[in-house]
Write a protein that binds this DNA or RNA. Structure first.
Length: 552
RNA sequence: GGUGGGUUCGUAUAACGGCUAGUACUCAAGAUUUUCAUUCUUGCAAUAGGAGUUCGAUUCUCCUACCCACUACCA
């Protein structure tokens, strides 16, 4: 039984998109499940589209996700250029394998599976334009090649002369006529295509002495002993060519699996660069700034945990058949099977992506989160002792999706509020309602509040509870609390405060809301006792004084 | 246009040819709470359409519609 060897073979033409990361992930899971190797190969046979930094980006992105290649990348995270025991098939960058491909192209010509073509880019362009003018599509195939300039149509001595004297010719595959290619895909099953609908693809270019994708891919997969090719669905149309190429070389071919595409959240079409920033979610694993200075968001910088990112990606187009949704990388490896990958494209759902991160945030230990939060605090100019930060994290982590949220949720624990929420709501202002989801029928039971005074979100309106009859009580409660000599822990404060308010028969909610406004500057937030316990009695007094000076 | 692939709640998906078509996200309602959030409960919501095979079709076959990919000396 041959050892499983799969590869991820991106082209360094820009940042790796999340769909690419998913392809890499599925390859990795497949390999690890079978105790095989995951190989990284850089397909840079198009010198015109090379983008500086793209290769480093790909490697860093995979590393962040925990997808570690067994072969192709060395310890320092560089693509391997020289063969060794661990990297027997180096180099792993196709541009550095240039010398390998020529002979395979020639071999195909000699065996009659390919031919030399001397058509200029301009003449092909013209042929295409002419066909289009007639409402047809130009195809370089068994019909049209008779009338074009190639080694099948030109006299032998002319061919010889052109090969020697010119340097912009190509090697094209000689697509057989009217033959049915029967193929099998691990995900899609049996597929048949008639070769008459296919064209004579360019395999090798004399101009830069480099193969095109099709040749390089087949040659390298063969030389690197790849056993399964798992790639995006966009490659399905070229599968017949690849089958034929394996046959022409007389090589055993790997098994193939074509993954469904990742689609944009709304509307039609595949997920593209622009969608993300337009709709407020990242399309890339890491931030990327292009040559014009435009920056695209990355999951890492947006605060996603790599485990959450990997998990959500895994569930986009695959599921284990059970109801489990949260998987560690190891659990994914154990559960993964290529047969359970779905055939249809998956629309990406940003809400679900956030949900995954929230779940991972909750699973993280308070200590670990506190370390991350400490960095956020520093960025806001706040220094706090470690154990204090751990305490805060424990209080707030259920309310957050990202570590960055911690600051907005708990800033008032570190910095006294300067302004008071919704002081500014003007009488008669429109009620801020959640926009209805246009894709859904309205719920007939949903209440409609057109009267601002009765809408529940208007608890936000501080004018409603910052009234003298209430805050005078709150002031007394604070005075009592500071003098009662109770402990500084949450429980003691809570008990003292509640008992005092109840004994006096005061309205609990109203008093508490006044305190909350003073403490947080807003009408929402943590439990009052939690806050007081954290900031201390003296700070409580200062904040009461301040709000009175501001709101009267 | 041609070729190939695809189609289950808004989204991701589950369902040996056989239960009231299940679950999660979103959304809504209720309970809990000093507020918000959390949590819990409940609810809304789908087999694209049409034939056929079958006792019985989401599942198998065919047709139609729609969507997607490919159609470069790009990958």
């Amino acid at each position: 039984m041959k050892k499983t060897r799969v590869r991820f073979a991106p082209s360094p033409t820009g940042p790796l998109h999340m769909g690419g990361v998913r392809t890499a992930l599925y390859n990795y899971l497949y390999a690890k499940k079978r105790g095989g190797d995951f190989i990284l190969r850089i397909e840079d046979t198009d010198s015109h589209r090379f983008v500086p930094g793209a290769e480093e980006y790909i490697i860093e992105a995979l590393k962040w996700c925990g997808i570690v290649p067994d072969e192709g990348v060395d310890k320092d995270g560089k693509i391997v250029e020289v063969a060794s025991e661990r990297h027997p098939h180096a180099p792993y960058r196709q541009s550095q394998r240039r010398s390998i491909y020529r002979k395979y192209a020639d071999q195909l010509v000699e065996a009659g599976w390919a031919y030399y073509a001397f058509d200029s880019a301009e003449s092909l362009e013209a042929a295409r334009a002419a066909a289009e003018a007639k409402g047809e599509t130009f195809i370089y195939n068994c019909e049209s090649r008779k009338a074009l300039r190639n080694s099948l149509s030109l006299p032998e001595d002319e061919v010889k002369r052109l090969l020697e004297e010119t340097d912009d010719w190509t090697v094209r595959f000689k697509m057989p006529e009217n033959e049915v290619v029967a193929m099998d895909d691990m995900i899609r099953g049996h597929i048949e295509v008639n070769t008459s609908t296919l064209d004579d693809k360019v395999l090798w270019k004399r101009a830069d002495e480099l193969p095109t994708y099709h040749l390089a891919n087949i040659v390298d997969d063969h030389l690197m002993e790849i056993t399964e090719v798992i790639r995006g669905e966009e490659w399905l149309p070229s599968l017949p060519l690849h089958y034929l190429l394996y046959r022409a070389f007389g090589w055993e071919r790997p098994a193939f699996a074509h993954l469904p595409l990742l689609l944009k959240p709304v509307g039609n079409g595949k997920l593209s660069k622009r969608d993300g920033d337009k709709m407020g979610f990242p399309v890339f694993p890491l931030n990327w700034t292009n040559s014009t200075g435009e920056t695209y968001h990355g999951y890492r910088e947006d605060g996603y945990f790599p485990e959450a990112f990997v998990n959500l990606l895994a569930m986009l187009g695959w599921n284990p058949g059970t109801e489990q949704e949260i998987f560690s990388l190891q659990e994914l490896i154990d559960a993964f099977s290529i047969e359970k990958v779905s055939k249809s494209g998956a629309k990406f759902n940003p809400d679900k992506a956030k949900w995954f991160n929230k779940e991972y945030l909750r699973m993280k230990g308070d200590e670990e989160l506190a370390d991350a939060f400490t960095e956020v605090l520093k960025a806001h100019g706040v220094e706090a002792p470690h154990d204090k930060v751990v305490g805060v994290v424990a209080l707030i982590k259920e309310r957050a999706t990202f570590v960055q949220d911690f600051w907005t949720i708990s800033s008032y624990l570190f910095v006294a509020p300067a302004e008071f929420e919704k002081y500014g709501i003007k009488a008669g202002a429109a009620v801020e309602q959640k926009p209805a989801d246009p894709r859904r029928a309205p719920d007939p039971r949903a209440k409609v509040y057109d009267d601002a005074a009765t809408a529940p979100f208007l608890a936000k309106d501080v004018d409603k509870f910052w009234k003298e009859e209430n805050y005078s009580l709150a002031l007394k409660a604070v005075e009592y609390l500071r003098g009662c000599g109770c402990g500084s822990d949450k429980e003691s404060i809570e008990k003292a405060l509640e008992d005092y308010i109840k004994e006096n028969g005061w309205p609990m909610g109203k008093v508490m809301n006044c305190l909350r406004l003073a403490l947080t500057g807003a009408s929402s937030g943590l439990g009052i006792a939690d806050i007081i316990s954290f900031i201390g009695m003296d700070e409580l007094g200062r904040r009461m004084d301040y709000i009175c000076s501001r709101l009267g």
